[in-house]
């Protein structure tokens, strides 16, 4: 995108403005669904799904990841794997807790 033509940039910005509107709508949805009681787990899962959808839109269009180079994708896959491991670490704690007598 960095060396795209003026017309390419204009087209990209038009898409970004649509994404911006979508993000505002999803923000309203995030707040609205938090008031719907579908159980703690249900609310957490739903909120994270909406947040992930918003984050994907920001990454794909605002950060230009939709048309990025292969090396950047490889870098992000590596970061994502370590991130998943980090987020999963508390599960190890649950699987093998230290019993206090």
């Amino acid at each position: 995108m960095e060396h795209g033509s003026v017309e390419d940039v204009k087209q990209h910005l038009r898409k970004c403005i649509m994404v911006f509107v979508g993000l505002l709508v999803l923000t309203v949805v995030t707040v609205a669904v938090s008031y719907v009681d579908i159980g703690t787990s249900g609310n957490i899962v739903l909120a994270l799904i909406i947040a992930s959808a918003k984050a994907s839109l920001v990454g794909a269009y605002f950060m230009h990841l939709i048309s990025e180079k292969k090396l950047i994708y490889s870098l992000l896959v590596l970061a994502a794997l370590f991130f998943i491991f980090l987020i999963g670490l508390p599960l190890f704690h649950d699987a093998d807790p230290i019993e206090v007598s």
């Binding site: 995030t30 609310n43 909120a47 947040a51 605002f62 230009h64």
Partner: peptide, 20 residues
């Protein structure tokens, strides 16, 4: 790109801290 990342982090912080 850095600024969008700051935005992206907030997108997760908002529901995780304020709504759940």
């Amino acid at each position: 790109i850095y600024w969008h990342f700051v935005d992206l982090v907030w997108i997760f912080l908002f529901p995780v801290l304020y709504l759940l």
